[in-house]
Amino acid sequence: MSMAPAVDAGLALLILGLGLWIIAARSNFAAVVGFMTYGLMLALVWVRLTAVDVAMTEAALGAGLTGVLLLGAAARLPAEAPGGGPGAGLRVLVAVLCVGVAAALAGVVLSLPEPAPSLAPLVAENLPPTGVKNPVTGVLLAHRAIDTLLETVVLIPALIGVWALAADRAWGARPGALTPRPSSSSLTLLAQVLPPFGILVGVHLVWAGADEPGGKFQGAAVLAAMWVLVVMAGLADLPKVTNRLMRYTLVLGPLVFVAIGLAGIWTAGAFLALPAGYAKPLIVLIEVVLTLSVALMLGLLLAGPPKERA
């Protein structure tokens, strides 16, 4: 393990360098590519911080899907970053302010209390009744279920917000940001061969997420990525935004979650409480339906507002 400090220092330097690159790069495209690399390196940092669940989410969502989203935006904007902005004097002032903020945060990091306060023993104590072995999944679905519910619900207003930006005459059409690429045989091949394996990986992440690192967000991100790949290769069309089946699937996950949560008032004495003995199957049920809804939401967020096709 004597290599570990060198690896940590190297990673930290790499992250800071990439952060500088993202801020300083001339072209939007270069900055976005830097951001995707940054996300992958950050995933390695999460592994070093023994947060494998977070590492997977960072790689799939932070680097992967966000990267695709931003690349698509960069392709629709002028290549060069626009000039202007505050003058030199103001920039120096802002820089001083930002260094101050960073220094204050660094001071906080250096003066964190010893021994570190932690909720981990509480979680470890209360995990067995849930029947789940991965503490992060246990926290997400049993102990802090209200957060998880609200965050899946927050994806729906985000999607409504994106759709609301459609031009009036485009309403009811298919989402337009993922225009299929002009037919390229290598992309088609990838979109024909990879998705079955991607589906298995996604299902495995959700299924194994109860006991090992993984979970619905990571699985849903992989499933959404496969869907986007198939759409970009032109092998399938996105549903119209008025499609009923798609809309029902979008709200199915949150609805089931809320229903089980409400049932908890009678069966376990509190909203979102899970009745003793049934916690594990209910958590698995919630994870499965939420995965479907979240995968659909993530894919549709990437697909952008509806647009008329020429």
Binding site: A191, Q192, P195, P196, I199, L200, V203, H204, W207, L235
Partner: peptide
């Protein structure tokens, strides 16, 4: 999951 993946695979290819 294998059956689902096979169905998708047969649809795509």
């Amino acid at each position: 999951a294998g059956s689902l993946a096979t169905w998708v695979s047969l649809r795509l290819l």
